[in-house]
Design a protein around this nucleic acid. Structure first.
Lengths: 364, 364
DNA sequence: TTGAAAGCGCTAACAC
DNA sequence: GTGTTAGCGCTTTCAA
């Protein structure tokens, strides 16, 4: 059995209260008794039982975090940022993963609530409203992170998806694409509000510039290398006029490049490829993938901070914030430049060379 | 304030026990009362307080997991596998991250102990013995995962590092390398037992085959793309005889390839490059990096299962298991073949094409 | 400066 | 089937 405060009290010959007090700085305990208590505690290998403390105090000093896929570098980055931020304020982070499964999302959220986390940072998988309805119902302070469900009225810190769509459209238009397509997530996810927002703005800007784009130019490619590869293979069989592909993430774009290589398409010259999420490897000269960088670390830090601030001050959460993404142009989409001057520009390698860079793939 | 069992009891007009019992399947409660209780519970938005339950029951049904860097795809993969396995047995997973910092490792382990996890899956950062000494002292069942500290007498499930070193040495020797080097982790990590074991076996096999290899052929390159890039840049300035580089991970190897490209070295023909950890992108034909695949998912699943089994049966943990790694040969190291027959072999693309493949980079 | 008593929300043992 | 009682380990009054 684990040593408790009682055991120590008995050994030292003081009350439980005294022992409890001895573990806190500048409480009204004499230096001598504190000394004794700490000694015995150490000898008996005592560690406080947080379960008991939390029950008694009525709060857990913990924040829950829900992500869709912990093995995705961006969620991992967010988790890391959240853990750090939360720890700085004396909180724990309970991490859970829905695996894009709405049922699991609900189950995980319930468990967090039952664990009595004081607040939740939630990346909803957005297939239903159940997730945030649940949190609202049980009255748990929460914040939507990275993206938020359609029509969501609550607090969020997210990436600016309209801007994302716009940047992509403008870039491809300027690169000289006349037949761009959007490779969105797989069928089941393609109707998530985040992808739809990007798609709509992407199309709107293209149309504005006189480039044809409608539902027929949206392809449920998926979000993995394998699915991007397959999607271009399939597309190319029936349509070889495509000259630009905007992928919903960079993994998909890597698959598209691979397919291009196998099909003998000159990526960057005859076909512009770009993705969302700037992975480290996008910078390799062999890849050199144009990507829209989202600031996941900052995003999460801001979210966690404002959640904890509100918790502290017992204010309701009101933050609704969209972070601007950044376009990183590389070789995979220099159609116009290459056509015009046939000149290669050195890829942007600054960040790869910077060992201090916060990285999604990290170390070992 | 949150609804408690008491509130429900009062509303329904039964005792707390009855309410408590009503939430369990086939307890001795009448269908009618259960019905009532559940109804009221639902109306009052009741959720059980796990903190209280755990305190009362004296166990938390939770397992702690310590990794060195949650943003590293392999640790993320392990976390995912652990969470799944543990959940299947009705346990929770508390995830923490030492960030390769031994002090943080201790702090995090202490927090897990205080949270009264029933067992711990630990990837020790190995800078000191403090981590496992602590766990032994507080008598927490634990398992070293992925790697284990030098001279470690306790239970572990790890990759076979001797085999890893051997596979690399044999492969480079057979590829025809006469001047191979080992790019190990950065200075501060290079003396970790895992890297040392790999290094020693790598050298031993090379020597056995009459290839020169000593401490001078070990370079503290680091484990990131940036550091691999820099390391080869530096090395090439003073030594151009190197014809094979075995990197402690694949990210480093990607950096090496990048450096090779920039320096005009023909990677795969004049310089063989290989790494440990087979990332998805290693399979892209633009990269085609030879790598030693470690089975992180299986590793973790086995560890978690045996931990929980022992917990259940109150047996002490005794497992000491090393999993065999697998060599995946690709274009980056086909020196001999290329020299001899100048023939390119199609890269192994099977796994990329398999959408079911468990992947480190995952979706979105 | 210390101690006694109460209680956080729940469950287990036992009585009815 | 249901209720009573006690107690998990801790902290927080309040009294001494």
């Amino acid at each position: 059995m684990k040593t408790t405060i009682k055991d120590i009290a008995r050994q030292v010959g003081v009350s439980q209260t005294t022992v409890s007090l001895a573990f806190r700085e500048n409480s009204r305990i004499s230096a001598a008794t504190r000394q004794q208590v700490l000694e015995v505690a150490n000898r008996l290998n005592y560690t406080p039982n947080l379960t008991a403390r939390h029950l008694r105090c009525g709060k857990t000093r913990s924040i829950g975090m829900l992500v869709n896929d912990i093995t995705n570098p961006f969620y991992a980055l967010m988790v890391r940022a959240a853990a750090k931020t939360v720890a700085r304020h004396g909180y724990e982070l309970l991490i859970t993963d829905s695996q894009w499964n709405p049922d699991k999302e609900i189950r995980e959220l319930k468990k967090l609530i039952e664990s009595r986390v004081e607040g939740i940072l939630a990346c909803f998988c957005e297939k239903t409203d159940e997730g945030f309805t649940l949190l609202e119902r049980y009255n748990v302070p929460f914040l939507a992170l990275d993206t938020y469900p359609k029509g969501f009225k609550g607090p969020f810190v997210a990436n600016d998806l309209i801007d994302t769509g716009r940047l992509a459209a403008e870039h491809l238009a300027e690169a000289g694409c006349r037949h761009p397509v959007f490779f969105t997530a797989e069928q089941e996810m393609a109707h998530f509000s985040s992808f739809l927002i990007i798609e709509r703005e992407f199309g709107r800007i293209l149309n504005e510039r006189g480039i044809e784009f409608d539902a027929g130019h949206v392809i449920s490619a998926g979000l993995t290398i394998a699915s991007g590869l397959e999607a271009l293979m399939k597309l190319w069989k029936k349509d070889r006029t495509v000259d630009g592909i905007f992928c919903a993430n960079s993994l998909c774009a890597l698959g598209v490049i691979e397919a291009g290589d196998r099909l003998g398409i000159k990526v960057g010259r005859d076909l512009a490829v770009m993705g969302i999420d700037d992975l480290d490897i996008c910078e390799l000269s062999r890849i050199s993938l144009t990507a829209i960088r989202q600031l996941y670390g900052q995003l999460t830090e801001m979210a966690a901070t404002s959640l904890i601030d509100c918790l502290r001050e017992k204010r309701p959460l009101t933050v609704r914030l969209s972070l601007k993404p950044e376009l990183i142009v590389r070789e995979s989409s220099r159609l116009k430049i290459n056509h015009a001057k046939s000149r290669l520009v050195a890829p942007n390698i600054s960040s790869i060379l910077d060992p201090e860079r916060v990285t999604a793939s990290g170390k070992v």
